[in-house]
């Protein structure tokens, strides 16, 4: 009798183990798919609130750094105003408020951020109530940061560019050659640009900027500086390692880009796809 009980208790543990592992793995697979970051994540209301609370302490220690970053941005904006005066106000020969590139920016605070995982996410302290929706581009004054993948009422979850699932359209500033920004994992200071044509001559120190082909980021926004260029024999593409212009480990305040006519552009593009399909 005691033996039977002993065996039963053993089987019981194995059964429990298998069930719990199945639950855990289904949660893992949910996180790894791009669109379904559901159930357990830090845009959740409770966890968002907890992070918001602890961020209050954390923020205090980052005040100096945040101040310096704001000063630098101020200086850059002043510089831009200088250039703006080349175009006199009310000059009718200039296109009025280029509607294709009309953007609004929402500022948000980073309340949680990781850089050393394979799938890194960032939590922001703003959400649906502040006008954030999924697929909005997130950047800080120095460069791009990531794309919003999920929003709750008060918080948003951002897929960092340091996420192996992330893929962003970028271009080489000098030659205008297009490529895909990816992260191979492990090193938060190294991103790679894939599928960039060999015909574009690239060298160390060149700038990589956003392409503006996707409606997520504004065009010509800084992304990174070329660190290393590798030419693989037998393919028409080169492999480019870049250093992101923004230190993703230290982001505190970010801008979320709201494109006023994003949905118009997107639905137009979708229509074209459909028509091409129909024609076939």
């Amino acid at each position: 009798m005691r033996n039977i009980l002993f065996i039963l208790s053993k089987v019981h543990a194995l059964l429990l183990f298998i069930i719990l592992e199945i639950i855990a793995f289904s949660l893992i697979s949910k996180v790894n798919s791009y669109q379904h970051v559901a159930i357990t994540n830090s845009s959740d209301k409770f966890i968002g609130n907890v992070y918001n609370f602890t961020e209050g302490f954390h923020q205090y220690f980052g005040l100096k750094r945040a101040n310096i970053a704001l000063l630098e941005e101020n200086a850059r904006l002043r510089q831009q105003i200088k250039y703006q005066t080349f175009y006199p106000k009310g000059d009718s020969s200039l296109p009025k408020g280029d509607s294709l590139y009309s953007y609004n920016y929402i500022t948000a605070k980073v309340i949680n951020n990781t850089v050393y995982k394979t799938h890194n996410y960032i939590t922001l302290n703003k959400g649906k109530k502040d006008g954030l929706v999924t697929d909005m581009g997130v950047m800080d004054p120095k460069g791009i940061v990531g794309i919003i993948v999920q929003v709750s009422d008060n918080y948003a979850l951002v897929m960092s560019v340091l996420n192996t699932n992330s893929s962003i359209s970028v271009k080489h500033k000098k030659s205008n050659a297009f490529g895909n920004l990816k992260w191979p994992g492990y090193d938060p200071t190294t991103l790679i640009v894939e599928d960039i044509s060999k015909t574009a001559f690239m060298k160390k120190g060149d700038t990589i900027i956003t392409s503006g082909y996707s409606t997520i980021f504004p065009p010509d926004f800084p992304v990174g500086i070329v660190k290393k260029v590798k030419n693989t024999a037998g393919s028409g593409f080169q492999y480019v390692e870049i250093k992101p212009t923004t230190d993703l480990n230290k982001i505190e305040y970010v801008y979320v880009q709201q494109r006023n006519n994003k949905y118009e552009v997107d639905s137009l593009e979708n229509n074209i796809d459909l028509e091409v399909e129909n024609d076939r």
């Binding site: 719990l20 592992e21 639950i23 855990a24 893992i28 996180v31 357990t40 990781t114 995982k117 799938h119």
Partner: peptide, 14 residues
């Protein structure tokens, strides 16, 4: 729950 890792910690600790 706090690290956006789905169930990785749970799977390994189980």
């Amino acid at each position: 729950f706090f690290t956006n890792t789905g169930g990785i910690h749970a799977a390994s600790l189980t």
